[in-house]
Design a binder for these strands. Sequence first.
DNA 1: CTGGGGAGGGGGCCC
DNA 2: AGGGCCCCCTCCCCA
Length: 374
Amino acid sequence: MLVEDSQSARAMMTKKYAHCPLKKRPVLVREERPATPPTTPPHPAHMATHFYYDYNNCDMENDEPENLSTKPEDLSKTGNYPNKASSPIATAAVKLEPREWPQQQLEYLAACRARLEPAAELARPTPQYAYLPTLYPSYPLEEMYPTAPSLSPPAHQLYHYSPASPPSSCSPPPCPEDLRSPGSVSSDSGVSVSTSRRPRYQCPDCAKSYSTYSGLSKHQQYHCAAAEGSLARKSFSCKFCAKVYTSLGALKMHIRTHTLPCKCHLCGKAFSRPWLLQGHIRTHTGEKPFSCHHCRRAFADRSNLRAHLQTHSDVKKYSCTGCGKTFSRMSLLSKHLEGGCGVPTTSPYEYRPESMPTGPSHQALAPTAPVHAY
DNA sequence: CTGGGGAGGGGGCCC
DNA sequence: AGGGCCCCCTCCCCA
C-alpha cells in the first residue's frame, strides 16, 4: 500500500486513477515477434503460457515502458493503431481478422483455433461469437448457486447506497451468486476468513487478521498504514510516477504496471501480469470459459459473467436508498446518483447492507467511518 | 441517457 | 518470495 493513508489512497483510486497515468493504457512493444512462429500449435490449455507468453522476456528491470501517456493519440504516434476501434484487439472482437496482420500470424492463429475445434460440441456460441467455438463447458451452476438458484439476490445481499455517497470501497457480503471461491467467505471488513477454524494472525497496528503468518507479514510490510507511525520505514518511490511504497517488493509489483513485461506476440499489447495476458489472449482465440446458465451467453472473464448475472435479477445488487431503484453495477448506481436521484434521503451517507440486524453494533456506516484499510 | 459487455488494474490469499 | 488465482473495481465503447 502506499505510504499515504489507505483511505485517501482509495479515494484517489476512485477518481479515475488520476494519480497514475497507466490505468487502462497497455502499450505496444517494439519487437518480440519471433522471426518465424512455431509451426506446431500447443494444446489450447497451454497456449497462453507456452506460446504467447515468453516468461523469459519478463524483465521488469530492463523493460522500459513504451508509452506512459494517458493520451490515446499517443498510440497513433507509435504507428500502431490510432484508437481502440481500429486496434487489432477491437478488430478481432468484431469477428474480423486484422488485415494488416502478417500472414504467418494469421495462419498460426487459425491453427490454434483448429486445435479448439474438438471442443466445439461444448460450445454454445453466442450470435456475436458464433464463428468461434467455446473451449470449456458452462460454468457449473452449482458453483454459482450452491443453494437454491434464484435470479434475484437474497435480501441480505442487497447494497443500499445513499445518493450522496456511494461507497466504492465497500465489499459485498458473502453470497453464492458472487461466484466466490469455495472455502472462503469475506467478513464485513473485507478480510477473507477461511471456513475452517484456523489460527489467526492479527496485525497489532490495525487489528486486521490473517489466516497465515505470511499474509500478516505481507500486510505489515506492504499495506499497513497504521504501522507506519510505529515503525521507521524506508520508502521506495516509483521512477515513472509519484507513487511511494514502503517496500521494494511492493514497488516492484507496481513497476510491472509501467514496464508491462508480459507481451502478446500476436498483437504486441503488453500487460503487467501473466494472467492479464491470458485473459487478453482469449480475445484472439475466442475462448469463453464462463457461460451463463440462464441465457447461455459465454464470457471470457469471470468478473464479466458475474456482472452479467445481475442482468437476470429482478432486484439488482446495488440499490438507491432514495428511490429504491436497483442497479446491476456500482457504476450505474453512481450515474444514477450523479444525475440526481429524485427522492431525497434523510441519511445521505448511509451504507446499509440489508442483512445487517439493527442494533448498536450494526449501525449504518457513515462516510467518515474508516473504510477498511488494505 | 441508460444498460450492458469487453477489457484491464490493484490488491489479497493460498500454495 | 513469487506465481496463480481470485474478487472488486473502473474505464471505454456500443446498442
